[in-house]
């Protein structure tokens, strides 16, 4: 009975968490494309002006980033300036929460049909690699190992600390700028 009464609050908390994670991830994607050359190398293969969206179906939270050229990503929040080129869509808020709370790896979520890809699959594979690299940098190794298929062997502790500090600093700066605006 109590659980049933608490359910709407739990759903709202879950939704808030997913929204917050999309905000952080969107800004972090922009930040990692500023600080990490391998990420830029991956993104360069996308056409300039390419819009990527992650969304919870049917009208849930979303994040939209654009490839602005030379491997740089720009976070657009949850509003796209034009129709997106690639959309990765979680079928339900519960599935997004599983992935964003690191209970289910992104690759496992794909294998479990939790997500749909609308657009060029090869770009989706590339963006998934970018997301994996981001998670490997910004999460503690023990948590990152729960989020990605394999923790990259080429990310060592000093590089991880330096890059994650720079990414978090940029994310914090963007949040402050958004609040001021």
């Amino acid at each position: 009975m109590l659980l049933k009464r608490l359910q709407p609050m739990m759903f709202q908390a879950r939704r808030n968490y997913v929204e917050l994670m999309f905000q952080v991830m969107g800004r972090a994607l922009q930040a990692i494309s500023d600080v990490d050359e391998p990420t830029r190398e991956e993104v360069r293969a996308l056409p300039e002006g390419f819009l990527f969206e992650m969304q919870v179906m049917p009208n849930g939270p979303k994040l939209i980033v654009e490839h602005t050229g030379d491997g740089k990503l720009h976070f657009h929040g949850d509003t796209a300036p034009r129709p997106v080129d690639l959309s990765i869509q979680f079928k339900h808020m519960a599935h997004a929460f599983l992935v964003l709370s690191f209970q289910e790896k992104t690759s496992v979520a794909f294998a479990n049909d939790r997500m749909l890809v609308d657009g060029d699959v090869s770009y989706a594979v590339r963006m998934t690699r970018v997301l994996n690299r981001l998670e490997s940098f910004i999460l503690p190794k023990l948590v990152a190992q729960r989020a990605v298929k394999e923790y990259p062997a080429d990310i060592h502790l000093p590089e991880k600390l330096m890059s994650s500090a720079r990414i978090y600093l940029k994310v914090a700066t963007q949040f402050v700028e958004t609040v001021r605006a």
Partner: peptide, 12 residues
């Protein structure tokens, strides 16, 4: 590396 089926390979 950009082929969709690589997502389902058990190893990265």
């Amino acid at each position: 590396l950009d082929d969709g089926s690589i997502m389902f390979n058990p190893r990265e």
